[in-house]
């Protein structure tokens, strides 16, 4: 069972419309050389500053998003001695508690896997063109990123 597509270097960069299976992604990219597997799941929360959220909708510029996700992976592999990178983002309507983004970093030792995973989610939120709209009982609002953190390339 290999639910995700691994590229020629064994890494996964994918956009999906259905539930992200982070455990399967981790198992798929892991290798005997790994001493650490760090995973991150971004989850749809049930409120924003106390206002009850019903669900979210994610929209993406898919071709560019995939390109930027693989750029993040390439940067990680230059900066840290990680073995594999897996980044999967989901689009469409997501309910409370569902996973919007899943990240897996494998490496021989834990420290660099933690650092690389932290870098991956922080950078994704700045340069990967995906937007979310939050739906409340009495309205809806686009969540927009911080424009002062402009990507440089």
């Amino acid at each position: 069972m290999r639910p995700y597509h691994q590229n020629e270097t064994g890494d996964v960069y994918q956009i999906v419309q259905d539930a992200i299976q982070l455990d399967k992604l981790a198992r798929q990219v892991s290798q005997p050389e790994d001493g650490a597997i760090v995973t991150f799941a971004g989850i749809v929360r049930n409120n924003t500053q106390g206002r009850r959220t019903l669900y979210l909708e994610y929209e993406g510029y898919e071709t560019m998003a995939l390109r930027k996700m693989s750029e993040i992976g390439a940067t990680i592999k230059q900066k840290w001695a990680v073995n594999q990178v897996g980044i999967v983002h989901r689009l469409g309507r997501l309910e409370i508690g569902e996973t919007s983004v899943g990240i897996v970093i494998t490496s021989a030792h834990r420290r660099i896997a933690f650092e690389a995973c932290h870098f991956a989610i922080d950078t994704l939120k700045k340069i990967v063109p995906i937007w979310k709209k939050e739906f409340f009982e009495d309205g809806e609002v686009w969540i927009e990123g911080d424009f002062t953190q402009l990507p440089t390339s």
Binding site: F40, A41, G42, I43, V44, R45, T48, Y58, G60, Y61, A65, H89, S100, V101, I121, L124, K125, K126, I127, V128, P129, I130, W131, K132, W142, I143, E144, G145, D146, F147, Q149, L150
Partner: peptide
């Protein structure tokens, strides 16, 4: 053309 991105986790 698009607004600043906001994907990922909350």
């Amino acid at each position: 053309i698009f607004p600043p991105v906001s994907g990922g986790d909350n």
